[in-house]
Simulated scan of single mutants.
Amino acid sequence: MKKAEILDEIWEVIEDRAINPSEDSYTTRILTHRKGIDKSLEKVGEECSEFIIAVKNGEKSRITEEAADVIFHLMLALKRADIHVQAVWDELNSRRH
């Protein structure tokens, strides 16, 4: 799997859970939480804090885990904000020129 393909696959799952909620899905629970987008934003903040602590403590495996959590929860927040992840990829691409 190419590096970016996993991000596209995760986005597809997020999109699917938004359309086809599942009671057993963590993604669904965050997307449909009674707090609305605030729940997604809380998770982004929480995971960013955990990432910072892992980096400060030099915990290599935790850094990787927390970085993945930050990216995942950021994507959930984008979905709740009705922003397609492609807009972020396009913005990043525009900054390369």
Rank of each mutant, 00 (worst) to 15 (best):
K39M: 11
M1N: 09
H84M: 06
A54R: 11
R17W: 01
D16N: 01
I63N: 15
I37P: 09
N20A: 05
E42A: 13
I6G: 05
G58Q: 08
I10Q: 00
W11G: 00
S25E: 05
E23A: 14
E46D: 04
R96C: 14
K35R: 15
S40L: 09
V44N: 11
D69R: 02
M75G: 12
E42I: 12
I6Y: 02
E9M: 05
M1F: 07
F51K: 13
T27L: 02
F51A: 14
E9S: 09
S22I: 04
G36K: 11
P21E: 01
I30D: 03
S49I: 03
K3Q: 05
P21V: 00
A81N: 12
T27R: 07
E65I: 08
S61E: 12
R96D: 04
R34I: 08
D24R: 15
I14S: 01
E42K: 12
I71P: 07
D82Q: 14
E47R: 09
V13A: 05
H73Q: 05
K79S: 01
H73A: 07
I6F: 06
G58A: 06
D24A: 04
F72E: 01
E59T: 10
E65V: 10
D24H: 10
K2I: 06
E9L: 13
L76I: 07
P21S: 02
W11K: 00
R62E: 09
R80F: 03
E15G: 04
H84Y: 02
T28D: 04
T32V: 06
L41R: 13
A68F: 09
R17Y: 00
K2P: 12
A67K: 09
K79W: 06
L74T: 14
I30G: 05
V13P: 00
A54H: 06
R96I: 15
L7P: 01
I83D: 04
H97S: 15
S22E: 02
F72W: 08
H84D: 14
A81K: 13
L74E: 11
A54N: 09
D8H: 01
M1V: 03
S49R: 15
H97D: 00
V55H: 13
M1G: 07
L92E: 04
A54E: 06
V88D: 06
L7F: 15
E66L: 08
I10K: 02
A77I: 03
I19W: 03
C48I: 10
M1H: 05
I53E: 12
K60C: 02
S40V: 02
S40K: 10
P21K: 00
S61Q: 09
I83V: 14
N57P: 07
N20M: 04
L7E: 06
Q86R: 13
R62H: 01
A4R: 12
C48D: 08
W11F: 01
I30T: 08
T32D: 06
G58I: 08
F72L: 03
K43Q: 15
V44T: 05
N57V: 03
C48Y: 13
K39R: 11
E15L: 05
T27H: 02
L41G: 10
G45H: 03
G58H: 13
K3D: 08
I71W: 05
D82W: 06
